[in-house]
Design a protein around this nucleic acid. Sequence first.
DNA 1: TTGAAAGCGCTAACAG
DNA 2: CTGTTAGCGCTTTCAA
Lengths: 334, 334
Amino acid sequence: MATIRDVARLAGVSVATVSRVLNQNGYVNKETEQKVIRAIEQLRYEPNAVARGLAGKQTGTIALILPDITNPFFPEMARGVEDAAQAQGYTVILCNSDDQGQKEKSYIEMLRKKYIDGIIFASNTLGQEDVEQMRSNNIPLVVLDRAPTRQLCSVIRSQNYEGAKLAVRHLLDVGCRKIAHIYGPQELITAKKRLLGYEETVMHFPWYTPSLMVPGHFRVDGGFDAVKELLKRHPDVDGIFCGNDLMAVGALKALYQLGVRVPEDVALIGFDGIGLTELTQPELSTVAQPIYEMGVLAAKVLMETIETGVMEPRLYELEVTLVARESTKRRAEA
Amino acid sequence: MATIRDVARLAGVSVATVSRVLNQNGYVNKETEQKVIRAIEQLRYEPNAVARGLAGKQTGTIALILPDITNPFFPEMARGVEDAAQAQGYTVILCNSDDQGQKEKSYIEMLRKKYIDGIIFASNTLGQEDVEQMRSNNIPLVVLDRAPTRQLCSVIRSQNYEGAKLAVRHLLDVGCRKIAHIYGPQELITAKKRLLGYEETVMHFPWYTPSLMVPGHFRVDGGFDAVKELLKRHPDVDGIFCGNDLMAVGALKALYQLGVRVPEDVALIGFDGIGLTELTQPELSTVAQPIYEMGVLAAKVLMETIETGVMEPRLYELEVTLVARESTKRRAEA
DNA sequence: TTGAAAGCGCTAACAG
DNA sequence: CTGTTAGCGCTTTCAA
């Protein structure tokens, strides 16, 4: 491993000069630059990132903290983050928090010690105080899918409220006359907005009643149980809007078990647009978020913050799109 | 941010002493140790990992190179790696190689510059020369699911051959009398072994013919297409063993489209044991590898190599288990 | 334009 | 047992 010293020696200049051509800053004579470049190539010199980090520069590493990479929603996002990071020479550290505040804190602690350049937070339990702490530690932060925490950091999310309306209207369009909603944890802004979108769209219908809303915890088994409960309460439901795709998958299973046909008896639609929705039978309609792009954007925003040093909190709200598939394919007959 | 110097000053000792208590090495008087510890706590001192790395110690960072985190097989493994790493204070860098040799090389290059402590390789295109290069660079390596490359590094995989036999025998047990196989890329040792297991189990049956083996590229669409082709060739097939679960999912879709009932008309079994197999309708039988554990083991072996410094190449072959679900649930009637 | 030199924070001989 | 000191490899004033 050649060092900057070796290069300097071979090129017959000082390390400072080599550093200058490396970082493209400060004045350096064209000719000397050439000499240096040749030396670099000759020695196959590669600057040592750790030393750079110590000398006050950045480490070129960002962290992605998410609840659980095993949840089918996250791999795509992680991939977006990684691709964008990689494209700019950054490296991504993966952290699974299981949505446990304590794990998150210990990760943050660890990351700070490692001089991580910034963090993308896609986990849910980040507290106000954590944000402030990171802020005071001056470590850039971008969060996904959370409420803008008093404008302390940039937030990226998509149109959850509008998407929910889109989903419910779609169900109405295909002829549903009694639509239920399986919702996620109300601590999550996403789940809340989707519930709100549902409520506001259906509350004026005569058939509407609060017991059409059942919790499903954003999980497959939650969706499964929710449907069982729901059809007990309302055997005449003919449309279900699930707050996320995972629950929709569970709902589908439950409906199958109950002998309810989808979409003939009950039309079903989810939210998120994860790949899984194309694998079920029937394929699931959904409101797709640009998950990959959200990851890419998060990484880009973070890297910009890191490089410019200006942390201007902004809110990015991405568009969602209705993806109509078999699970809602039926004629409006009303 | 307090530094080791601050601690030394406050405790009235030298930095060397502080370093000693920090790293629990060298002799240190109990009382001095206490003073130091108190100073550390008082200043909330946290050693700077980057400086440590530069000073020759390890960086406490390992990399996981895999083809694509978006492939449902990998999140679980990644989770295993991360959990094990985290438990020992290591941090994991995620790299998606898309199985492109060039991307892998550029990652390795980058990781080396960052003084990564070791690499777990779950990608497929790692060449012999790469392994040797890493070896000469003295960077520990553990590979997953590959042939033991001339014993240059530790290898972790599971019983692919035995698992394949298990799958095929299971199909025979439930009464199948003409069993096909959809296989993965033959460059992959896993795919090859599974194909071999199939062949050796069925080759003596009168119905056996090579055209019962169709490629499916380890992908959902590959499995889908393979089934279409297969049933054209052999309409009387009544059992299909897919080389992985992803292809089984695709196969299931194709069978459904063709109006072939599973398991009544055709029994279907996959390989891997990814979560997806529980979400389809009917649920898929599979030969489950301990995916999470493979990740954990890989991380542990790697960390041990890093810490002891001895790189003794070993081969770990984990057991697989037959998971019989609906997709093969039928009486043997022969 | 270039070089000398002072760190960045920590570890590890080596000497006491 | 403890302190001094020389790096690890790079960046960045400050002079020249």
